[in-house]
Nucleic acid binder design. Structure first.
Lengths: 142, 142
DNA sequence: CGGCATCCGAGTAGATACTG
DNA sequence: CAGTATCTACTCGGATGCCG
């Protein structure tokens, strides 16, 4: 397991970022009135992440295509998350009033900007997933 | 609202990253056997995020201190998340067998490395939270 | 003090059937 | 096809009490 050194400088830098972000709030009230928490709730949602990843890979997908790809999502969840993601501006929904109806979803530019950030995190988690799984095993053996 | 341009080049780059990450799996089975999804489930959890942020700002915290800061978390949730985060290697738990007992939590170097990634995402979400709230309002007015 | 065990209620997710 | 509506099941999470 390659341990990467985190310098004290980096730790201070992180602390300062946190202070800057949340400093204007009373730290003891932070959770209550926090727009960041609100935004994070959407973009860190399990299904939202998958939807965004799939739309990052397949630029345009219809409702049922998406449903097939994310095989274990229900109609309800999918339509709900799509609505939230559309409302927040991450993706666009285009309806073609043909018969049968056709609806296409794709990431907006804003959604792509989010995707880039998300990918940094998923890349990190991929890079370290082995370490984490190992850690977990060791821990439960104790 | 400042729209930032996302070039086609960046979009392709994102798609390639996704392909690299998930390409070795059958895309249609991706959700089932995905270690990334497993790791993400932990680190994108609402409470875990808050715990890591607080420990990024206050380097050492005891159980009840943490509980007071994250004012709306229950004992159960807190101890559960702490255990998971410890198991995965994000934080360390040090027990001092005094009376009354004292237990201190702090981020490991690995936890700090994660924190850095997390902060990039929270910074992004802070930067765009106004836009998102606006989007949401517009959407629900329609 | 730290935190586990138990219980219990509310909310959420899934399955299914149905509609424009 | 793209959802919505309804019902059920179950999980999550909060409250409480207890113990090392």
């Amino acid at each position: 397991m390659e341990i990467e050194t985190v310098t004290d400088y980096q730790k201070v830098k992180s602390a300062n970022k946190i202070k800057k972000m949340f400093g204007h709030l009373n730290p003891d009230d932070m959770p209550e009135f926090c727009p960041i928490r609100d935004v994070m709730a959407v973009i860190s949602d399990k299904w939202s992440i998958l939807i965004v990843l799939y739309l990052g890979f397949f630029p345009i997908l219809r409702f049922n295509q998406l449903k097939k790809k994310i095989s274990d999502i229900s109609n309800k969840m999918l339509s709900e998350r799509l609505k939230v993601l559309e409302a927040d501006g991450y993706l666009s929904r285009t309806m073609y009033p043909e018969v049968p109806i056709r609806v296409e979803y794709q990431l907006t530019d804003f959604g792509h900007s989010y995707l880039e950030k998300l990918l940094e995190l998923t890349e990190w988690s991929e890079k370290h997933s082995n370490t984490i799984i190992e850690n977990r095993k060791k821990f439960h053996k104790k």
